[in-house]
Amino acid sequence: MAMKRSGISQFWASILANSIYALGNYPAMMVSMFLTPFSILVVIFFVSHGTLLTVAIEGGLIMTMITSGMSLQTDLSHLKNDFKLQDMVVASPTGAGMYLFGMAISELVYSIPAIVVLAVLAILFTHLTALAWLILIAVMLAMFAFSTCLGFFISTFTSDVMESWAYTSIISTILSALPPVYYPITYIPMPFRYVAYLSPATYAAEIIQGASGFLELSSLSAAADWIVVIAITIIIGFVAVKKSRWREE
């Protein structure tokens, strides 16, 4: 007499435990949640005398998605190693995919204020076409899937949250320092531009900057960028589901 299990419950559990209850118990997290999206925006706005505001708003939206994955990695590593939650969930009917999905969405809860604020700014200042909006949302979703899968994958290998932080700074260099997310890629002088292309986020940024008219982007380049973004998302998604250390070796 197997019990009938509700997938919605399994999904909800992660959101409750990792974000809603946490926010309820640690109010400081709310404040940080509202502040984060402004930090970079303010810097870019002043440094560029306002000229890069619109690129930075779009960049902010992409970075919010990428940061979700990095936070997911740290949160999961903390839960796995300090509370042995992963072991408890492994020895239960919850599969890795469901756990990853619920936990990924729980990170999105923390990003809601950032997304709302940035979206309002985007509506006010960027004057995107409907197509550009669609492209922006698609790229955001791809970056979210990519970075949360990567974060999950790495977290299953960490044996301590300290180790997780080390990976976070490596990944944050690749995904947020290297790519021209907050400014057009043409701002990077030539030989260094190739380095920027090592980061998947560069392709995402290029697609959006092309769609919103900040960059002359041939349709061939746009297609190439899309192929890279989609391919890397699929590869990392596959790796996360197949190669994560759900059961330890």
């Binding site: 009938k4 509700s6 419950s9 399994q10 992660s14 409750l16």
Partner: peptide, 12 residues
Amino acid sequence: QFIFSYLLWRGY
């Protein structure tokens, strides 16, 4: 909250 979440994870 912990016990409740765990049971939800199990699909209750």
